[in-house]
Nucleic acid binder design. Structure first.
Lengths: 204, 204, 204, 204
DNA sequence: CATGAATGAGTATTCATTCAT
DNA sequence: AATGAATGAATACTCATTCAT
């Protein structure tokens, strides 16, 4: 029993180090140019062991992406929903960007997008997590603002798309094309203006 | 002389067919998985001929991207700038999306983004064309609406980013992750609402 | 442990067969026309395995040359240094030629010389082994003859060059230009005359 | 007639410039790595024209070698044969080395040697010119010294081989393995000592 | 369970030679 | 006669995956 659990924990730790090495290598070189043998080396396991844990490079990649995305969507969980509407939305935007840039999600997005022609499902799944899961959280957040009569009743799903689009255009889109792009200094200013636009239309 | 011009025309036509085949293959398989030999075969030339025209796979790819982008930015040229502000903006949005989906620019964007880690300059250049060149056209378009007193004076550059972001979020972003995505039926509806939001804030 | 040593022995044997096949192919076709894939085939390994053992064609070639030269310089070790001066020198000349023709060193020299413009260091290194290492042995051999008062004191380094040159001119030089040249029947006669010349000048 | 001779002269000049370019490129890169198209470019002709003059790369190479060797053997023609034996031999050695190093014959020799496995006849022919033709001249030169009773009667052919070997060992052999080797400063000293050795044995 | 050696199926690129004009 | 575009065959090297121990 003890032996078995020891083995399992060793195995788990190997799996984790493979995933970590995989994440690093995939981010650095993209999918095609990432070499499985490099990942195995960096994870201090043999390629055979790697293949015991993941049946193919593709599966490894998918798992890396999933793990990397696992936190996404929870970043809005504990936002103070008693605050002013503007404060709630500002906080949401900040957390969104913090996760996106802090976890280097952009680098992963790039690779996922790159693999659309060859493994379309990965990209679709990732979109589901990266965009739709967050969207759901944000929609219910906005819905609560409507309930509190801080916003007019409106199509809040579409509303989230609109304000999300404004934020993405300013911060994510440039970062997608240039790995060296970081959050600009005037981020708050842009966020605030986007929120004002939103309130112009949907504020009470 | 006749010989020379004959040769040039043959050569031009080969070059064109290489570019066309390259475009197709790159779009279908992405950069890394596209085989130069496949491109040559589809273009009905030998690989050696291909290499006479383009010194490397990378150069071929860059040229494909450039040609595909050559029209971009001109799509707004002849918009009737005497029309109503809403009409002008609606027309611009439509043309933007028509070019984007009609020329399958999204597929190229995917590949360009994929190559950010290995050939960053290509992505940066492409961003310049795809985003900045259009942005400039759109900004001067909006500026004219301001001049005509149809919009309040405002930071029109940032304005273009905002409305562009709203449009992209709804149409381009999903298409980036899923090659089968097309323009939805309710496109006009979304476009109109985005424009209304814009007018709420910046309309007279 | 058993596994490891088994693996090592398999690996060693593959390495050896690659070197042997490489030597044969290089000798038959020269460096440029030797195909790595042919070497792999003859060695009964895949090209990938070959590249596990040697990182490039060049490295394989260098190793082939080194192995082929590994004996060189030792051929004079156990010459009876109590014999007459003429006998000692005759024996040295014979052994020199035996190694040179027996191991087909001439064929390797050809290839090394061929690669002077592209990989100069290989040739310089090989010269060091083929010429200088032997020279050192021979010089100390002659020095002992001087010590024994069988030869007058003289610049023995230059002396070795002179007698070596006479031998090479007669046997090696023609073999360098014609792969079918072998040791002629009257070799001894020529060797003896060269030695006589030497004694005329440097004998007591 | 005038037209025809004009054409012939143009053709001759093209041929000459191909040979000259070929010589340069072959010397710089060796045979295998020399590109026919580069030679054509440097000679300012099309590849097709090149192939009108020479049916193959090999034939071009052979011709280059032949032309480069055409002067060889004549360098001893006008040596003052009334001078002292030592002076005659010293002068011959000097001229030999001047031609060898001045015309960069060593570089050509390298390539010829390199091609022994693939085109053996070229090397054999070249050996005939480089070694045997000169040998004949030198033998008759030595014979005259014997006639003049400045040297004892002896096998002058073998004698030339011996003294030639001593010279080659000191100067040519190192240059063969290292393109940067030039004639050393103490060349005369070595030449003189070789000649002394010769006189020890064959002088009157 | 873990290994690392082995592989087969690719891939980009080059070059001597030919051929239509 | 001269051209230069075109080619087919070749070649060094890579990598995801498997398998004997």
């Amino acid at each position: 029993m003890g032996l078995e659990s020891y083995r399992r924990s060793v195995s788990e730790s190997k799996r984790a180090s493979i995933l970590s090495a995989g994440r690093e290598i995939f981010m650095k070189h993209g999918y095609s140019r990432a070499a499985v043998s490099d990942i195995a080396r960096d994870a201090d396991v043999s390629t055979a062991t790697l293949y015991k844990h993941f049946t193919s490079k593709e599966e490894l990649f998918i798992t890396v992406v999933r793990e990397a995305c696992s936190d996404i969507g929870n970043e809005f969980a504990d936002i103070d929903d008693g605050a002013s509407a503007r404060a709630v939305m500002r906080e949401a935007a900040r957390r969104y960007l913090t996760v996106q840039f802090g976890n280097n999600v952009n680098a992963l997005l790039r690779i996922v997008i790159a693999e659309v022609p060859t493994t379309p499902q990965v990209a679709i799944d990732t979109y589901e997590i990266i965009v739709m899961r967050r969207r759901k959280q944000l929609v219910s957040m906005i819905d609560r603002l409507v309930e509190r009569n801080l916003l007019k009743p409106h199509d809040t799903g579409r509303g989230v798309d609109f304000i999300g689009g404004m934020i993405k255009e300013a911060f994510i889109w440039p970062a997608l094309f240039d790995a060296s792009v970081t959050l600009p200094d005037n981020a708050d200013e842009i966020i605030n203006e986007a929120i004002e636009i939103y309130f112009c239309r949907y504020g009470v």
